[in-house]
Design a protein around this nucleic acid. Structure first.
Lengths: 169, 169
DNA sequence: TTGGAATGTCAACAAGACTGACGTAAAGCC
DNA sequence: GGCTTTACGTCAGTCTTGTTGACATTCCAA
């Protein structure tokens, strides 16, 4: 499993990647994702919402006026699954669903004031952890972190991410 | 992305972190995790196993002879939840459960040859993606990636991770 | 006008997490 | 030897979040 016989090569820097190093990265990813979701999860727990609600709130906030179909693509779930979550958020007055003007079949989604308030609370918690991690790791580590994550995405997902990343930001 | 206004960037601290930057990191984490699990998920799908089985196989492989209790702590699930998964793996002959010699209440877990074969197949797929991402991002990015992830973990989880990380490797 | 696309709903189901309760066996302690 | 604790397994039930499949509605576009 270690690089056989002849020398490893690479575009960037003749990276020598042992299975050990890769394994550490895999386990780091696994454990870090738990931390990544821990703070919002705690908040959601008390409110009787789940991670799926957080994700919906996050992307409706990020993409105000997005259609249901577009949100499906971003979240990577079925419409039935999203619909259950969205229905609840709409019923609870966190999300506003407006019939499209150009195309009245479409529903455009917006956060209400209450929705924005919860989204802010959730993302503040998540950002606080991210900020602490960034501070602890330092400036260059942050750039590397993002580069590896972006390289790890599926190609089609990366396109979505990049469009999102560079819009307004 | 460019440092606005003035000053601060840093070696270790004094990182100037906008909410935009943090948000990009959060979304990168979200999308990258999908990629991270995509390849093993595809393999497992055809075998009628799930992500939970993969996690169990991974850590039994990593910690041969580990007890059920220890595995619970690493995975962060309840024993009922783990038991369902483990029972299946044992029944299917992928995991071997041996009564402890010093303490006969304990069960020590090992992969069988078939278990090792599946674990190798899964981790080979996951490592391939990680390797590609590392190569694309370059040597320094890898170090930064790991630093940020480690800083993002909960404290108690990080202890487990570090113990695991530095053992034998 | 008709076909197809976008949305939504109902029903059924499964994985994988959870809690709570209980049983058994073994170990540890007084 | 007896009592308590620990480790493990299991039964039963619940919840969230994902899945398919079927079907209705609305409405754009050819």
């Amino acid at each position: 499993m270690t690089e056989p016989g002849g020398l490893p090569q690479s575009g960037e820097a003749l990276l020598f990647l042992t299975d050990e190093q890769l394994r550490k990265g895999i386990e780091a990813m696994f454990f870090a994702y738990r931390g990544f979701t821990a703070d919002p999860d705690r908040i959601l727990d008390g409110l009787d919402y789940g991670r799926a609600h957080h994700r919906a709130l996050h992307f409706v906030n990020r993409l105000p006026g997005t259609t249901v179909n577009n949100l499906l693509a971003v979240l990577g779930v079925t419409k039935q699954s999203l619909n259950r979550v969205l229905r609840r958020l709409i019923a609870d007055g966190l999300v506003d669903s407006r019939v499209g003007r150009a195309d009245r079949r479409e529903r455009h989604l917006y956060l209400t004031e209450a929705g924005r308030a919860l989204e802010r609370r959730l993302s503040a918690a998540q950002r606080a952890r991210m900020r602490a991690a960034y501070r602890a790791a330092g400036h260059e580590a942050v750039a590397g972190f993002r580069m590896v994550l972006e390289a790890m995405m599926d190609d089609d997902i990366r396109q979505q991410y990049l469009a999102l990343r560079d819009q307004r930001g």
